[in-house]
Design a protein around this nucleic acid. Sequence first.
DNA 1: ACCTGAACACCGTTCAAGT
DNA 2: ACCTGAACACCGTTCAAGT
Lengths: 218, 218
Amino acid sequence: MCRMARPRKPLLSRDRIVTAARTLVDSEGLAAVSTRRLAAELGVSGPSLYNHFRTKDQILEAVADSVSAQVDLSMFDPQDARDWRTALHDWAVSYRAALREHPNVVPVLAQGPGRRPAGLRLADAVFGSMVDAGWPPAQATSIGALMRYFVTGSALGSFAGGFVGDETAYDPADYPHLGQAHLLAGRQEEIDERAFETGLTALLDGLTQQYEQVAAPH
Amino acid sequence: MCRMARPRKPLLSRDRIVTAARTLVDSEGLAAVSTRRLAAELGVSGPSLYNHFRTKDQILEAVADSVSAQVDLSMFDPQDARDWRTALHDWAVSYRAALREHPNVVPVLAQGPGRRPAGLRLADAVFGSMVDAGWPPAQATSIGALMRYFVTGSALGSFAGGFVGDETAYDPADYPHLGQAHLLAGRQEEIDERAFETGLTALLDGLTQQYEQVAAPH
DNA sequence: ACCTGAACACCGTTCAAGT
DNA sequence: ACCTGAACACCGTTCAAGT
């Protein structure tokens, strides 16, 4: 009578599902992620996923959070010697690099609210570090927000990638200043990188100016 | 024998479809836009849309472009007296306002490449104006890109909206600095607005510093 | 507890047929 | 040219059934 079932350990776990979903969205895009396709990738039937997640959207949220979790936050550790400006710069670079490794996930990450644990950890670390550096709390909140705007915006859509390489694509009558625009297409990585660095430097320079007026070093 | 058909004028047009799609996405979100639903809203059957657009995605692209078209560009007119910094500021404000009126469209707008006519007109106007103001072309390109990053990022996901209003939501053990975070939920509009203005000012302050070094006033 | 197949109410898109 | 209904190959999700 010893027929207690359950030696057969579970085929699925939240972790296995998230990993498979991230792999799929990385390689084939958001549109390729259907519950049936994802389940097939995992060797199970579609409805099985619903034992681990309530909806497909929650799977994608978990994927987004797993990307946020890859952002380095060590520069905000209290024992780290970096000043706030350097810490913010290094964080932004690490943040963007993490998103650029999973560009197809960025729309989910950028749009969904920050209810995800790893997203909250980001917000907590930058806020705490800025306050510790002497920024008033309201300003520290703004800094977390505006850095997020800039980094997700830069990771979301390539600017240069939007141009086509065809020399005849931009009629001077319509776009008088885009005569060289077709040249952007071939160097999009470089151009987006430079724009990101230019913007980040400007942002930090501007914040440094504000800091001198409002901050109270503790 | 005078039976030439076609007095019955077309029921649909690209314009009517785009307007209906924009209304639908504004009121019920991107997910509510299906070809069948959109067609029903227009009083026709689903496949009719394919006489005017090749795919549903192209309908959404056209919606995105119609939003870009609402961005004011008059501050870049050569006869406008505003200096480059003021023009850039006013443009960013108008740009963000247009996106905020159609928040559900922003993911499409931010992600899709800038092949859309109105999107190209934006890029053309800001690039031309910055070059005219004395910025080297490579820098003018960067400015167009980084402003787009910041504005679309700020319109895409509310920062403050990501927090819940529940006081017990953020365990201090997990998020030591988010003790007041639940207060953000009630004032998200104000907080996002302030973060946008703070970031924009920092960006323009920083660019002004760079301008003094690199630009050659003509 | 966790997985399955069947089923429901949807999708985007194609196509032959009508006017 | 422009619209239709029927059809194809899909969707997300629920649910009763199995172990």
